[in-house]
């Protein structure tokens, strides 16, 4: 059973930075655990990550907008652009952030 988010002060998710996203933002490991208070949305997670790693903003945004070639997946499912504020997260979720490579 997946945990629900009711009656919680925070949830804990794992964020994995792929491509060259990890480089130069002060991260030792590619995967980090992040505690997220309400709202438990992907949009809020991105804001929290930007605060935790200030140099990340330059890597994922241009003119304060997410780069169009950014790939964000939650538990392996790509999240459609423009729906980050609607994507609710739960404890244990695995978020992957990557640039869209060309893959050959």
């Amino acid at each position: 059973m997946k945990e629900t988010n009711d009656h919680k002060d925070y949830i804990e998710v794992t964020v994995e930075f792929l491509s060259s996203l990890k480089e130069g933002i002060g991260l030792k490991d590619r995967k980090v655990k992040v505690q997220l208070t309400k709202p438990y949305t992907l949009q809020h997670l991105i804001e929290v990550l930007e605060k935790l790693y200030p140099k990340l903003q330059n890597k994922i945004k241009d003119s304060n907008k997410l780069l169009p070639y950014l790939l964000i997946a939650v538990n392996g499912y790509e999240v459609m652009p423009g729906t980050l504020d609607k994507k609710e997260l739960s404890t244990g979720d695995e978020i992957m952030i990557s640039y869209l490579g060309v893959g050959g």
Binding site: E16, L18, S19, S20, L21, E23, K59, L67, Y69, L71, A73, G76, Y77, E78, E94, M96, S98, Y99, L100, G101, V102, G103, G104
Partner: peptide, 23 residues
């Protein structure tokens, strides 16, 4: 562009391996 200025010069196209695996 971060893909062309960072990812490709550093890793080539091999970043697709983990991205594909994780999805």
């Amino acid at each position: 562009n971060k893909v062309m200025s960072e990812t490709l010069p550093t890793f080539g196209t091999t970043t697709a391996t983990l991205a594909n695996n994780s999805t």
